[in-house]
C-alpha cells in the first residue's frame, strides 16, 4: 500500500480530524533519503493499517505546513493524535529502527 498524499487543502480533514493516529511524512522530491525511506513507510503502513494511518506531505508544494510544524530537516515524521503532534522522528532509518521509534503507535 502506497501512503497517500495530503495537501494544505486536505490536511485538516485527513490528519487533524482523523480518528486514528496519523503519521505525516514530510518529504521532497530532491531529498535522496526521503525517497530511500519511502518504501519502508509503505510497508509499515500496510502492516499496521489498523492502528496507524501514514500519509505523505510534499514540503515543496505545501511550504505553509512545513513552516507551521517547524520542519528544518527532512525526512521528518510526525505522529498526530487528535490533532496534536505526539511524536517526531527525523531522518531516514532502517525499518527495525523506525518500528522501534513508533512502537507506541503500531503495537
Amino acid at each position: 500500500m502506497t501512503a497517500r498524499a495530503v495537501t494544505e487543502a486536505t490536511f485538516e480533514q485527513e490528519v487533524l480530524n482523523n480518528e486514528k493516529a496519523v503519521l505525516v511524512d514530510f518529504w521532497a522530491e530532491w531529498c535522496g533519503p526521503c525517497r530511500a525511506v519511502s518504501p519502508i513507510l509503505d510497508q509499515i503502513a500496510t502492516e499496521h493499517a489498523d492502528k496507524l494511518d501514514i500519509v505523505k506531505l510534499n514540503v515543496d508544494e505545501n511550504p505553509g505546513l512545513a513552516m507551521k510544524y517547524q520542519i528544518t530537516a527532512i525526512p521528518a515524521f510526525k505522529v498526530f493524535e487528535k490533532g496534536e503532534v505526539v511524536k517526531t522522528v527525523i531522518g531516514a532509518k532502517p525499518k527495525p529502527a523506525l518500528e522501534a521509534d513508533l512502537a507506541a503507535y503500531i503495537s
Partner: peptide
C-alpha cells in the same frame, strides 16, 4: 538539536533556510 537547525545534508535541508 539534530534536525532542529543542525543538519548533515545540505541538499535535503537547505530549502528550509
Amino acid at each position: 538539536l539534530s534536525g532542529h537547525g543542525l543538519s548533515w545534508c545540505a541538499t535535503c535541508d537547505g530549502f528550509f533556510f
